[in-house]
Design a protein around this nucleic acid. Structure first.
Lengths: 362, 362
DNA sequence: TTCGTATACG
DNA sequence: CGTATACGAA
């Protein structure tokens, strides 16, 4: 039995907008921690991963894990019948082959109920490698959208290069070739540096739902490298996917995503234990840094341990960038020969896209 | 070697918007005085002439004249990649078959560079007749846009008639026929009359880059005629094109445009010499008249020496009217049986369209 | 300016 | 059929 209420139907609508063009059918995996969706596009070049935390719902109850096999086209149609600010309740029984959606206007004057047939979908539980990326770029989601759309009109693919100069997006086309260089915003860098210096115990916060391992000394090094243009090598952890396609894990291999999730939990606990007294202070500081560096003047924030240079299909990136409606900022995580991670984090969770690079940098 | 920097990429974008639908490929003729473009549409019914003065650029350098053969579609695509307020630098080498465009955000955090292939275009240097028009209508560009669009929905062509009553735009369609009469705005007329009376030496300024010959006595006469409804004939100077198409000059005939330019220079010198002491005063007065008559309350300003009545294809006029984004006001110059001149003047230069009338006033 | 739709084109 | 462009509306 699942029963989950979102205060804004818009969240679901926006999530679906970008996903439905990538995947036709997918399982919404519901469990006590929330709702997850993972799916590959048909060509197995892109992978999308959505998380809605249970505590982001106005009401959430899920007795036992249920996979809800949904045709995303149908769900989109049904969601179109909700107003953006409607309260939206999802219900499904454990054995059920039906998903019920209830939309309620906030003044309770209107209640709409829809039932959607569910389907059985082979649970290609996907192993998402817990990659240690070499570069992270945080930028305005709208700017990312703009860049990939601009380059899309020139050519099919974009080369993304992160160097100490900044991040460069380059595309070659028949009529013209172009590239856009985004420099680390000065204001963002200064704030970032002060942020590091102020508090020796502080670590670079990646994200609310960070993929990476927060090893404090290493993190410090990363920042230093960015400033000193140090090129020394650093070990790769879990860098296991350097091919152009994702591979579905057979189910008995275990759930890759759950593994990631577990390690995240551990990290959070450790962090909390090691510096609990400074917690409140840090939180405040972090918020201010993020709002000024990321949300503020459209600053670009770059962290890098290695020069990276990869080529991707613009078609996918343009598709991903539709999720800009969910968040003001987007994070790009890169490492040579490994899928790019494009991540939008919002109040209730996140949507992450993984895109295999083009091989041979063509 | 050409290197030219515009403070606002929007200027180029807006210029291209209207031109690209008229012409596919055109030469940007660059020389020390600035950048010119002249081209005819495929049917040879319309001609467009663009000028960007070198002193309108933040930086301008052109060692020797270079024609840059540009596919306007490609250039449009590349310009789409610029934000309106980006600083835009154009670069081309003398022998170059490439045009480089650099866009810089004003905070310098983003630098985009594009290279566009150039092409060889037969330089149909066009002879633009140095016509002495019989009527000039200055009006709000937005009003002109509105009128031609409105009439476009009724019929294919518009008859434009300038009489002492004002200027009338009339269209006949199957479902309906309509006409719009714009009277000379009183406020504009008064200011204009005072302006003439105040200073006997003053001449009617046409435009910053006037095509016409400023013959002072004749100009006075024109104003008088407008008031007295005098119908006496006046000789036409250079009225050599009364057919429905423009003719390309072969290159060895000389450059018509340069001729015009030369004669303009002479005129300017003569004017300057004859009344240099009153120059500053005139300038100030001229500015005030222009701002009140043209920019003010949307007044329509009409000067006329002859009753004119011509018919034009609305499709072209609607296209021309897209240049309204470049200037608040538009000037229509008319003379019977001669192409209409539609002129938008802006800070950096102008865009002028010539449109051959429909023959037989159908 | 951004969005959505309509249409023309490949 | 999908894409790209143009136009009108918000």
């Amino acid at each position: 039995m699942l029963e989950a209420t979102l205060n804004e139907a818009a969240t679901l609508k926006r999530l679906l907008d970008a996903v439905k063009e990538l995947v036709q059918d997918a399982n919404f995996e519901c469990n006590e921690s929330g709702i997850n969706l993972q799916a590959m596009d048909n060509s197995h070049v892109a992978l999308v991963s959505v998380k809605l935390h249970s505590d982001g719902f106005a009401l959430y109850r899920c007795d036992r894990p249920i996979p809800l096999g949904v045709n995303l086209g149908s769900l989109t149609k049904v969601l179109k019948c909700a107003k953006d600010d409607d309260k939206c309740t999802l219900k499904a029984t454990d054995d059920g082959d039906v998903l019920s959606l209830k939309y309620e206007a906030h003044n309770a004057d209107r209640v709409a109920e829809y039932d959607m047939k569910l389907m059985d979908i082979d649970a290609d539980t996907l192993g998402i490698p817990d990659t240690e990326y070499d570069a992270r770029v945080t930028m305005l989601a709208s700017e990312f959208t703009r860049i990939v759309r601009d380059l899309m009109s020139l050519g099919e693919s974009v080369r993304i290069e992160v160097s100490k100069e900044g991040v460069r997006f380059a595309s070659d086309g028949e009529a013209a070739q172009g590239n856009i260089l985004l420099k680390q915003t000065d204001a963002a860098r200064e704030r970032y540096e002060n942020y590091g210096k102020d508090d020796e115990d502080e670590e670079v916060k990646e994200d609310d739902d960070d993929d990476e391992k927060p090893k404090k000394t290493k993190k410090k090094e990363k920042v230093k490298k960015e400033e000193d243009a140090d090129d020394e090598d650093e070990e790769m952890a879990n860098g296991e996917d350097d091919e152009a396609e994702f591979h579905a894990k057979s189910e008995d291999e275990g759930e890759g995503e759950e593994e990631v999730s577990d390690s995240e939990k551990k990290k959070r606990k450790r962090t909390a234990a090691s510096s609990s007294k400074a917690k409140a202070k840090k939180k405040a500081k972090k918020a201010s840094v993020e709002s000024s560096a990321e949300g503020g003047a459209g600053g670009v924030h770059i962290e890098m341990t290695q020069h990276v240079n990869l080529t991707f299909s613009l078609k996918y990136l343009v598709n991903f960038s539709k999720s800009a409606s969910l968040s003001d900022t987007v994070q790009l995580m890169l490492k040579n020969d490994v899928p790019l991670l494009v991540s939008y984090t919002f109040g209730q969770g996140y949507i992450r896209y993984y895109l295999a690079p083009k091989i041979g940098d063509d």
